[in-house]
């Protein structure tokens, strides 16, 4: 069994608590940490001709922004604390992508914050944490 732990981070306060929790798990143990940020994306949504044309350029901007504003600062914090961090940014359905990465890396555990971008939508359609609790291929810790 590999000693990888995945923490999904979306930039929210709950996400930050999840990162801290995962860091505490990894600290001192022979574990590696995957810091995963997923950009919500469906290949089946509908785009206008302009959006199709701009998509490639916009994707670059989105990735750069996710890297600089969300992933890099946390990665720097964790590395400062002496942890080895494998940071990944992916596009896709958030829940599915977290599960995919868990399988690819052979992760032992997934850690995620309970309330990501909470609101009416997640109340109606369920949250990522709720979905993961049901479909995660490995044990999943939901940090309040």
């Amino acid at each position: 069994m590999s000693n990888t732990i995945i923490v999904a981070y979306d930039g929210s306060a709950a996400g930050r608590r999840a990162v801290d929790f995962a860091a505490a798990l990894v600290q001192g143990a022979e574990c590696s940490l995957v810091l995963l940020h997923v950009l919500e994306w469906s290949p089946y949504s509908f785009l206008t001709p302009d959006e199709v044309e701009e998509r490639h350029a916009r994707r670059k901007v989105e990735l750069a922004r996710a890297e600089s504003a969300i992933v890099a600062p946390i990665k720097a914090d964790l590395e400062a604390a002496g942890l080895k961090v494998n940071a990944q940014i992916r596009y896709g359905n958030v829940t599915d992508t977290i599960c995919e990465v868990a399988q690819e890396t052979g992760a032992r555990q997934i850690v995620i914050g309970r309330t990501g971008q909470a609101g009416v939508m997640s109340r109606l359609f369920g949250s990522v944490a709720g979905a993961l609790a049901q479909v995660a291929p490995v044990p999943c810790t939901i940090v309040p």
Binding site: L39, W41, S45, F46, L47, L63, Y91
Partner: peptide, 8 residues
Amino acid sequence: AGEVSHFQ
């Protein structure tokens, strides 16, 4: 992923 898909 994140680029325009064939479906789109």
